[in-house]
Amino acid sequence: MPEQPLLELRGVEVRYGGVPAVRDLSLAVGRGEIVGLIGPNGAGKTSALHAIMGVVPLAGGDILLSGRSIRGRRPEDIARAGVSLVPEGRHIFAGLTVDENLRLGLAARRGRGGLDGDLQRIHELFPVLREFRRRSAGALSGGQQQQLAIARALIAKPEVLLLDEPSLGLAPTVVERVFETLAQIRADGVTILLVEQRAQLTAGFADRTHVMANTELRLTLTPDQAFDTERLSAAYLS
């Protein structure tokens, strides 16, 4: 019997008013896996993540976490159930300090066991956050803010980490650093669903990558198909 996915989307539909944003999306993320979700602007990637987090209501289908439906639950309850989102644009709290932003991540953490060790690991992954812990988060650079957003999600000790375009607006060298960090996080056993615009980078990095276009899932790629530009282009333009 195959292992139950940690996160599963079954025929998910999202609509804004009457306009469909996601149609019949089904995908599964197994424990310890990293799954990519790529596609052009307006494909429905962010809407899919918002549906998982309960930010937008489902018009159809279901979302299961460890086999149990989380449909209709409030965002804070889904976060407390073990799903953390690093939102597009980072959404760090600019008026709070770096440490206060990290403390906010604790709101979703179940129990404080192992917190010291996790904090130490986070500071190993993101040394700048220790260095600037008392600095206003708004004073950090874009790359540093992205690190803070990821660290804030990790401190909640999530079962699944959702990342919405973590490379957006970052310089190429910083993007490289972000992906290196994601590899380390994955090595720590964190399950990841990664939404990205950088198609080939993501497809080469994730265990498998789904391509969305025009609100639907069009193609699934394995890492060795990352540079199959013909299929990728066809899926994007379909």
Binding site: M53, P75, E76, F93, A94, G95, L96
Partner: peptide, 16 residues
């Protein structure tokens, strides 16, 4: 303070 700055993000972080 977080809810006052950005309630949606605060809720996404687990703030009730």
């Amino acid at each position: 303070r977080a809810a006052a700055a950005d309630f949606r993000t605060a809720r996404l972080l687990g703030v009730r």
